[in-house]
Simulated assay, not measured.
Amino acid sequence: MNDPHMPPHPMKLMGRAMRGFSRLADAALRDLGFATGQLPVLVSLKHRQTLSQAELARIAQVEQPSMAQLLNRMERDGLVQRMADPADKRSRLVSLTADAGERMPQARAVMQSLSQQALAGFTPEELAQLTELMARLNQNIDRMADAADSL
C-alpha cells in the first residue's frame, strides 16, 4: 500500500516522465512521419551513413528480431533502404532515404522544443546536477546489463 507521506520512488518518477515525454513526442513527430521508437535508428544512420541491422540493434539496445520488425516498418514507410553488404553477402546494410534525411532537421527541432518545455524552470546548476545523476544511473544500469549478459 502506498504511503501518502513517502515521496515516490525515483525509478517510478523517471518511468512516468519518459512515458509522458514519449507520448507527447510521438504525437508531435507523427505529422513528420516519424515515431520516437525510430529515433535511435534515424540518428545513428544520419551520423554514420550506413550500418548493419546488428549494429543498429546494439546501438538501440534491442534484440535482433525487434530491430528487424522496426526496420521492416521503416522501409515500408520510406524512411530507410536496405542493400546487400559488399563485404558479406548474407548481411544487409541500412541507410536513410533522401526523404527521411530531409525531414530530420524538422524532427530535431520538435524534439529540442519539447525538451526545452520539459526542462523549463530548471536552473543551469540543476540541469547539470540532473545530467550528472542520470549519467551515473545509466552507468549503473549498463553495468547490471553487462553482468546479466555474461551469465
Rank of each mutant, 00 (worst) to 15 (best):
A135P: 09
D146K: 11
F34Y: 02
N2W: 04
G101L: 00
R48C: 12
M11N: 05
I59F: 14
S44D: 14
L151G: 13
D88Q: 05
M1L: 12
V43Q: 05
D88Y: 05
A147E: 12
V110K: 08
D31G: 09
I141A: 12
R143G: 11
Q49H: 05
R19D: 09
Q106E: 11
M144I: 07
N72H: 11
S95L: 00
I141V: 09
T50D: 06
A57V: 04
R76L: 12
Q61P: 08
E132W: 08
F34S: 03
R136Q: 15
G20V: 06
K89T: 10
K89I: 14
S95W: 02
D85M: 02
A87Q: 11
V41R: 00
M18G: 10
N138H: 13
M134H: 10
P65S: 03
G78T: 10
E55H: 04
E126V: 07
A84N: 06
R19M: 10
A107N: 02
N2Q: 15
D26P: 01
L79H: 05
F122H: 12
Q38E: 03
L133M: 06
A147W: 09
D99F: 15
T123S: 07
M6F: 14
L56I: 04
A100G: 03
N138S: 14
L56E: 00
A128I: 04
M74W: 03
A54P: 07
S44A: 05
D77V: 06
Q139A: 13
L32A: 04
M14G: 07
V62I: 14
R103L: 02
E55I: 02
M144V: 06
Q49D: 10
A28Q: 01
R136W: 10
A118P: 13
D31W: 02
E55P: 09
E55W: 01
A147V: 10
F34C: 02
V110R: 11
L56Q: 01
T123D: 10
L39C: 05
H5V: 15
R136Y: 15
V94P: 03
R16M: 14
R30H: 14
V110Q: 08
E132A: 14
L70N: 00
D26N: 08
A28W: 04
R23M: 07
H9K: 12
V94W: 04
Q139N: 12
V43S: 11
L130W: 05
S91E: 13
H5M: 05
R108E: 15
L70I: 05
N72R: 10
Q139W: 09
E125S: 10
Q117S: 04
P105L: 03
S115M: 12
N140H: 09
A84F: 07
R143Q: 14
R143M: 11
M83K: 09
A148Q: 11
K12C: 10
R90K: 15
P10T: 05
